[in-house]
């Protein structure tokens, strides 16, 4: 299970990193002649069942009202690998008369697979950067509270309780409402990270505070005090390195919350704005039942979210049980 989860995550991160190379089309390239194009069938066997170089047939729009397509068997294009295209050097590509849409296209005829790959960049980096910032905040407040105790501890803990008592989703909506709706997309990206970290740091700060509280009375920490080590040194050399394992586990289990948070904001149109793809705003098209019924490939970002979230959770769980086995 652990390796499966690692494999899934590894694949998605590879997709995100090499999106420019893997996605055959730019994320905002529209093909107005092919809205809701079904996933292109890639043929790898010929009529007698032998393995041959993959090829595709072009699709013809049969019914423009219901958007039904038919494979045009009279023509075929070979899928070219590692080739120079009008959009740069790509992993695979077909001549424009065919078009290779691995996961179909959306309403505007944009390739869902390409958008999924580019969207992975945003959705995954929101999780990672968000958790990173949360960690900074959590470590800062958690170690202040845990190490100094007393009034500081009480103040920080009451603050986290207030934050945690507000339902996270409404807090996110409220925070989003403070800022104008039309912002440059980069600003929106960082705004979402900020909102998610602001909502998420409280829980982590409490975990870290608890850990520091228990390590604070360890004799090597007391000893460090008696030979004059600074508070900074004690926290970062003597306490936190011994708790890193718990921190990694809480990070792996926190990342899904960020991915889901970004997805839910974008789904409501409050997150990443079109034409920039994120898994959340790609799914917003799938809110209509007709779309899901007739063009189920629009849901593929949902599958991606599901896989990544499950993989992160499995990873966190196996890390915990591995640690228990080691002791």
């Amino acid at each position: 299970m652990k390796y499966l989860a690692l494999g899934i995550l590894f694949t998605f991160f590879l997709l995100a990193i090499f999106a420019d190379f893997i996605a055959p089309y730019p994320y905002d390239l529209q093909n107005r002649e092919a809205p809701y194009h079904p996933p292109t069938r890639v043929h790898i066997l010929d009529s007698s069942g032998r393995l041959i170089h993959p090829y595709v047939h072009p699709y013809r729009l049969v019914n423009p009202i219901f958007k039904t397509y038919k494979e045009d068997k009279s023509q075929k294009c070979k899928v070219e690998f590692f080739t120079q295209t009008p959009y740069g050097f790509k992993l695979f590509y077909t001549p424009p008369r065919c078009g290779v849409y691995l996961l179909g296209t959306d309403k505007l005829g944009r390739d869902v697979f390409s958008r999924l790959v580019y969207g992975a960049r945003i959705s995954l980096s929101v999780g990672l950067i968000g958790v990173g910032i949360t960690f900074l905040l959590g470590i800062l407040f958690g170690s202040l509270a845990g190490y100094y105790g007393g009034a500081i501890d009480a103040a920080v803990m009451r603050l986290t309780e207030v934050l945690m008592s507000i339902p996270a989703f409404y807090l996110m909506l409220t925070l989003r409402a403070i800022f104008p709706l039309d912002m440059p997309s980069v600003a929106v990206f960082f705004l979402i990270i900020f909102i998610l970290s602001f909502v998420g740091w409280a829980g982590l700060a409490r975990v870290i505070r608890g850990l520091i509280l228990s390590y604070r009375s360890y004799e090597y920490v007391l000893a460090a005090k008696t030979y004059g080590a600074s508070t900074f040194r004690i926290i970062f050399k003597h306490i936190l390195p011994n708790t890193y394992f718990y921190l990694i586990v809480s990070a792996t289990s926190a990342i899904p919350a960020y991915i889901l948070g970004e997805a839910s904001l974008s789904l409501l149109g409050l997150g990443i704005q079109e034409p920039y793809p994120s898994w959340g705003n790609m799914l917003s098209e799938a809110r209509s039942l007709t779309v899901i019924t007739f063009f189920p490939w629009i849901l593929s970002p949902g599958v991606a979210i599901f896989l990544v979230v499950v993989a992160f959770n499995i990873l966190g769980d196996t890390l915990v049980s591995d640690k228990e086995k080691i002791g």
Binding site: E219, Y220, T226, N242
Partner: peptide, 14 residues
């Protein structure tokens, strides 16, 4: 300087 009671805890394991 001080020497503590419990040697298991007295030194940072890292």
């Amino acid at each position: 300087s001080m020497v503590f009671q419990n040697p298991r805890e007295a030194l940072n394991p890292r």
